[in-house]
Design a protein around this nucleic acid. Structure first.
Lengths: 109, 109
DNA sequence: CCCTTTCATCGTTTTTTTACGATAAATTTT
DNA sequence: AAAATTTATCGTAAAAAAACGATGAAAGGG
């Protein structure tokens, strides 16, 4: 990104992009909010609460888990998910750093 | 999102999702960083610096502009973009509020 | 005036995302 | 043991995103 083109994007840029992508759908935001609201983990209750099919919700949960923002565990026949607090802290840190960069610039348009 | 299903997602959820989507690509993050780095607005210099075709960069700029995160103006034959500081402030606020919600939950997995 | 530069837009292709129903595996319940 | 519940995964369809080259419009320079 500095002089020669060709070298793709930095690790940081990619990590931030991936985390942002996890938030880039209202359903996933709603899921995260719901997980946070009930401090006891939930599972198919999320399906009850969202206007989406069970398989679709399951998919969103998987994406959130792959992004690291939530943790999951199996409890009998049920599945239990919850906020990954550490991941959110890290996410916050990365964002804060990014926003700080944008603060130094005094737009001209 | 509360009881009856059907009612789609809230305004807030959608706004956050849209802003997050704007960050959900490393090229757009790189563009924002570049705009912030040069406090003088730039334009096709961004193309020089990214490993993407001019038309692709133009597209990313348009998306960032539509998300409100950057402002653009025409200067002769050149185009000039810069960080929209107020929008970033607002974005930060929305995120902060969202992260606060997640902080109250003590995961159980 | 032509020629060049700069950039947005169009048309297109490829890839990714979103969504759903169907199915299957694992557990409970009965 | 059979039936029902819960959930992940598969297959697929439709929509959106990403990327590129080509084209065209506007402005500047010669």
């Amino acid at each position: 990104m500095s002089t020669n083109k060709k070298e793709a994007f930095t690790q940081e840029e990619q990590e931030l992009a991936e985390l942002a992508k996890a938030l880039a759908h209202p359903a996933r935001i709603a899921i995260l909010k719901e997980l946070a609201r009930r401090n006891v983990c939930i599972c198919g209750e999320i399906v009850e609460v969202l206007p989406l099919a069970q398989s679709t919700v399951s998919q969103h949960l998987k994406e959130l888990q792959q992004a690291g923002l939530i943790k999951g565990s199996v409890d009998g026949v049920k599945s239990c998910y919850c906020i990954n607090y550490e991941a959110f802290k890290r996410f916050e840190g990365i964002l804060e750093k990014f926003f700080r960069i944008t603060e130094n610039s005094q737009g001209c348009c």
